[in-house]
Amino acid sequence: MNAAINVKHLLLIWEQFRAATDITPIRDEAHCARMTEMLQALLDETQGKEKHPAMGLVDIVGDLIEGYEAKHHPLPEVMGVQALKFLMEQHGLKQSDLSEIGSQGVVSEILTGKRELNIRQVRALSERFGVSAATFV
């Protein structure tokens, strides 16, 4: 049998938690930056361990950031090389900055359509930019 929820107690705990963490729907760019910093700290703490007690917070903070970004900085509906070019522009990257996918020559061939991304490169780009691997396929 479920115990009745003590809303007054819940609100007291929520206010303490919110005051300590500022975990609320993201209001502006500065708040988004703080939540992104918190997410990185949580990810460092959890080290990818799904059963870590902080993984619930990782999910909540990640969802808040994703919602804010989707509303305020939507990615255009592009795929493959167009997405890569867009992300490079948004992050101020040059071809030489993408050493994880190959030399500047390899990156140039990919961007001009002379070469296709392989699965290793797709995974590396997905991880680097925090987007689905499907973005680059």
Rank of each mutant, 00 (worst) to 15 (best):
L64A: 12
L64T: 01
L64F: 08
L64E: 08
L64P: 00
I65H: 00
E66S: 10
E66W: 00
G67P: 00
G67T: 00
E69Q: 15
E69L: 13
A70I: 01
K71E: 07
H73P: 01
P74H: 03
L75V: 02
L75Q: 02
P76L: 07
E77M: 03
E77G: 03
E77I: 01
V78Q: 05
M79G: 11
M79A: 13
G80Q: 10
G80N: 13
V81H: 04
V81K: 13
V81A: 07
V81P: 03
Q82C: 06
Q82T: 03
Q82I: 02
A83Y: 08
A83C: 12
A83M: 15
L84G: 04
L84I: 04
K85C: 12
F86P: 01
F86I: 06
L87R: 12
L87C: 03
L87N: 09
M88W: 10
M88H: 09
M88R: 10
M88A: 09
E89W: 00
E89F: 11
E89G: 13
E89R: 14
Q90L: 15
Q90E: 09
H91R: 14
H91C: 05
G92V: 15
G92F: 00
G92Y: 00
G92S: 08
L93H: 01
K94A: 13
K94S: 12
K94L: 11
Q95A: 05
Q95K: 14
Q95Y: 06
Q95C: 11
Q95T: 14
D97Q: 02
L98V: 07
L98E: 12
L98H: 02
S99W: 03
S99H: 09
S99N: 07
E100C: 10
E100Y: 01
I101R: 01
I101A: 08
I101D: 06
G102D: 01
G102W: 00
G102N: 05
G102I: 05
S103K: 05
S103H: 04
S103N: 11
S103Q: 10
Q104C: 09
Q104M: 13
V106Y: 06
V106I: 14
V106R: 15
V107K: 06
V107P: 11
S108R: 12
S108P: 06
S108E: 09
S108Q: 10
E109Q: 15
E109S: 14
E109V: 08
I110T: 10
I110N: 14
L111P: 15
L111M: 11
T112R: 15
T112A: 12
T112S: 15
G113Y: 05
G113W: 02
K114T: 08
